[in-house]
Design a protein around this nucleic acid. Sequence first.
DNA 1: CAGCATTATGCTGCCTAGTAGCGATTTTGA
DNA 2: TCAAAATCGCTACTAGGCAGCATAATGCTG
Lengths: 380, 380
Amino acid sequence: MTAGLDQSGIRRLNTSAALRELAVSAEAVTMTALAERTGLSRRTIELILDALVEAGWVAELDRVPVTGAAGRPPRRFELRAQHALLAAVRVNTLEGAAVVSDVRGNILGRARRALREYPDPRSTLDDAADLVREALVDAGGTIERLRAGAIASGGAIDADGVVRRLVHTEHWAGVDLPGELGRRIHIPWFADNDANLGALAERWRGAARDHDDVVWAQLGSRAGVGILIRGTVHRGFQGAAGEIVEAVSMRAGSIEDHPIAGLTSPVRQQQRLARSRVDAARAGDPAALAEVDEFAEHIVSILTTLSWTIAPSLIVLGGGLEDAADVLLDRVRERMRAARAPEIELRATSLGPDGPLVGALKFALDRMDTQLFGPVVHEA
Amino acid sequence: MTAGLDQSGIRRLNTSAALRELAVSAEAVTMTALAERTGLSRRTIELILDALVEAGWVAELDRVPVTGAAGRPPRRFELRAQHALLAAVRVNTLEGAAVVSDVRGNILGRARRALREYPDPRSTLDDAADLVREALVDAGGTIERLRAGAIASGGAIDADGVVRRLVHTEHWAGVDLPGELGRRIHIPWFADNDANLGALAERWRGAARDHDDVVWAQLGSRAGVGILIRGTVHRGFQGAAGEIVEAVSMRAGSIEDHPIAGLTSPVRQQQRLARSRVDAARAGDPAALAEVDEFAEHIVSILTTLSWTIAPSLIVLGGGLEDAADVLLDRVRERMRAARAPEIELRATSLGPDGPLVGALKFALDRMDTQLFGPVVHEA
DNA sequence: CAGCATTATGCTGCCTAGTAGCGATTTTGA
DNA sequence: TCAAAATCGCTACTAGGCAGCATAATGCTG
């Protein structure tokens, strides 16, 4: 049950502490600094660094005299983040995209293409694997260095990455995304829903950086709500967390076909149409403004309910809605205040359409964290 | 940032592993068994046990030859759970109760009394402290062995244990419960809301033992929703998670004064009245049945919304509602199915009115866990 | 440009805490 | 009574941490 530790365990632990510290700092680190930050002795750090350089995880840089500082110039060490690579893919009805990053999450390569025959999961997954290989080439990396990957997809995806339900396409139900991708590219794969990964991305390097409880919402032609509780995706029973969208649609009528809802549509033409309506509203066109109001009203009924149940500290609007942030946000805020909802902050995504892809990267990184960087000690 | 570990750290870690293993097993444990379960060598376990016996945490029992087994009878060790004690108190408008337990959560002593002058926080807190002392005497323990305590109270209580809002009594707003109790009994104190602790208790040793995402709801004259996500209390922004109750009351009208709602009232007379209506419904009285239906309808509007947003895997009804479980639960289930809510399991509390008190115990235990038992290693 | 303060480097020696495993001890069962 | 089984108590050894000292490389000062 509770595992004890021998001497080699302590070394693993301390190595991981050093590695994490190296990963956190953007610049090269000296031995002394590392010793201070980990609380270990300089001697111990010296031995650990020797081993890490040997293993290829760390590079020693040339000594550069620190100008203006007395004393012998220190040895400088840096994480070789590219020692291991991660992949992220995103597929939706019309196109797919992939990125490859180092263990710091720096994106090194990209690929993007229209998907053929989306309704056939097999060919789409072939395409997804191809996209990863392309992005890997673009990153100048080899398949051996790839350690893990994650895929972002629409629909309800359970904790094991199996597609439970995908609107308009029954062929995808039951598809085991990690399993299928693992057969094509032999690394551990993880899968989650667009919206959940959007939320994760926003917290990592987007608009939700300082928040632990976050709701990310894409509302319109395509709807999805991603929930982060204590920084971790919350799916709920059978992935039902966030299904309030469907519930409200059932009660108050769907807005899939509302002109403004097209902002979140994957179809270019509908997007353009919606944007032009938003432009008109921005210019003061009364009919367009009424449409925006109507759309805001619908959004508010969902966001208010979320505020009274989950009560995140921040709600992020994404998936296309960011394009109407200037006309939409204040209207939504005002209506939420009128509904006496808790004064939860509301922002537009700062990552744009790449959000879910970036989130997939973070997802893979989190899942691999202890495997890449080693175990952690939890003190009081 | 990331803390490294020296040799004494490894001993602390291994000691905590041994201690946890001892805490988990109900019966006395042999050295060999402990060595196997922790993965440590028998020699190491021997040394650790010596130290733990010395410190009073562990007692060595008399050797009893295991009948029917060959070989030298093993030494047997047992956690002296009473080496440290924990306290829990609960206060509501009319009465207070306290329990004292050992570190395993076995309740060793109890106390209960009517509270004088509830609207005055100071005298109520004096009473609470007295109750703890009484329970301590009942447990046969001394104040020195008391290590931590927690208090369950109504109202919105923030993460620091400060009362933010308490209906009908403004005097309590801003009261720092852990601080106040700490001034009276000098141990670390923690505080949370009834409902949150009710949920925690239910997961610990009640109806939610096998669930991680739980909603505990008391709905009626007194209303409160406690939410557990990944086994931990979720309060939400400014404690607003679960405020859906108030929101629904605002929208659909309050049911505080509904005859059935009296089940959750702290006032005996209203309870009796409500129970008699439930009895009548049970006997088939049409008017009473209609009342139950009406009440169920109201509950469902709240539970359905929670199912679509938080989607726990289980909803537990408590706070008095358990007394009507037989007539109420099926009606609620049926209506939720009709509303197309996710098929989330619904149960009545199995702890009765002591739930929140037991939850407070668990809360204190969780918060003190690493201080009592030492740090933990998180492997992949 | 020599000398000093400053900072970092390689070590050696020492200590803690874990493991392996051997002979002794205590019991059961033939 | 003796072999087998199971555990005990211990010694010898190893891993990996720490303290701290002599040495090295630099900037500054007179």
